[in-house]
Design a protein around this nucleic acid. Sequence first.
DNA 1: CGTCGGGTTGAGGGTGATCAAAGTTTGTGG
DNA 2: CCACAAACTTTGATCACCCTCAACCCGACG
Lengths: 240, 240
Amino acid sequence: MKATERLLQKLKLGTALDADDAKAIKRLPVIVKELPPQTAIVREGERPHQCCLLVEGFLCRSKTTDAGKRQILSIHIPGEVPDLQSLYLHVLDHDLTTQSRSVVAFIPHKPLRALTRERPSVGGALWRETLIDAPLFREWIVNVGRRTAVVRLAHLLAEIGTRLQTIGLASEDRFELPMTQLDMADALGLTPVHVNRVVGQLRRAGLLELRKQSVFLPDFPRLRERGEFDDLYLHRTKTS
Amino acid sequence: MKATERLLQKLKLGTALDADDAKAIKRLPVIVKELPPQTAIVREGERPHQCCLLVEGFLCRSKTTDAGKRQILSIHIPGEVPDLQSLYLHVLDHDLTTQSRSVVAFIPHKPLRALTRERPSVGGALWRETLIDAPLFREWIVNVGRRTAVVRLAHLLAEIGTRLQTIGLASEDRFELPMTQLDMADALGLTPVHVNRVVGQLRRAGLLELRKQSVFLPDFPRLRERGEFDDLYLHRTKTS
DNA sequence: CGTCGGGTTGAGGGTGATCAAAGTTTGTGG
DNA sequence: CCACAAACTTTGATCACCCTCAACCCGACG
């Protein structure tokens, strides 16, 4: 799928766009690149002049504390533009890295800003897109702040499964997840050792099969429950 | 200060606005209300048709887990519009509550949307405003995920002090904070008992004086350091 | 003077961290 | 195809931060 197609598909999930809007989006100039895993796209403190549309693969955003501990802030799947905010917040306050081999499309700020001015409905769609970050972050605060390790992991898996299904890239209960247990630890505010034990717990409970990087969730409804997962915060529908 | 003045003042911190923009903002219809502490403004699941500009006092956003534990997601100070996002994300995914006696101004969505369409620079300013949430949430994820209790508390105090100073409402090292230790616990992902011990630690270290709800930070530079606080994520300047 | 919300302090326990080592998979070069 | 290294997973033992439970204190307010 072409890069701008993917963007259009994503925006349409949230906002009604007409044929002219679609055409304008497809005309956006992009530079497509394929990047290996663990490659920094932008780093904390930088001032990018382009946005990064993820076409294939996984990205993640992270910060590292003064004490040298890493915290993953979000995981991104195709169709998302994790640094769209840089249109208005010029200095990046975190790192953006490829999690797997990924295909990304860079779109310069300038034509993007022009587009938002000329086509208000596209502007609105993009605005909405920048807003969808925050609810996810909020839920993650709850996750690391108030849930036990098992529940945290179950919640993370339920979230990723649900999001992948929304874009039609996978069934919610079976997908490839290019994260090591160390990465999961950094996403959950735990140590890798403890993640491993907790993976074992979910496995023994019949809620998770994990081999290499392929995830299978044999009983998704029970996993959701275990993870206290409610997809309201994903704002998946036009009306929500 | 009039409600819309406060908003204008806030927006100008982030975006350059001309006299016409200012006039348009001041013409926004508002309904001003004074609310007692601990009053729900909007709740998870609701679909507000107005935004809530905080004029005086403190608000906080929170979620409650299935297990009944509360997590505070953010603390809001005058000039902020904590539910501005509801312009595009219609269902609220968390609660918004007054923390102290507060004066809030409700602005209906309709004229606000019209304003963004008619005055793109104001639209941009509002867009930017909705974006400033996310960096704070990200930092909070790091706070609860990767920092010890003392560092967390120091970080929270440094953040609030810095933000209050930015809007000129207080010196950064001395301010009124209408939060009980229980509230702080819910903001930090800790128990009230442990917050109390950690307050004691900061006190004994000469970094905090706390009486009822008035905070004094005798050595702000050292507190910042203790809290690993770097204000980059607050995006305080036009250029950042 | 009694009650209530909130702050303070103590004792004991548990979740998850730390340290350590062995096992397994993946990848690389010979 | 094998040898070897590197990365990741798994498991065990011990430790500590923070939680839980409980009691007491204190000031505000009726």
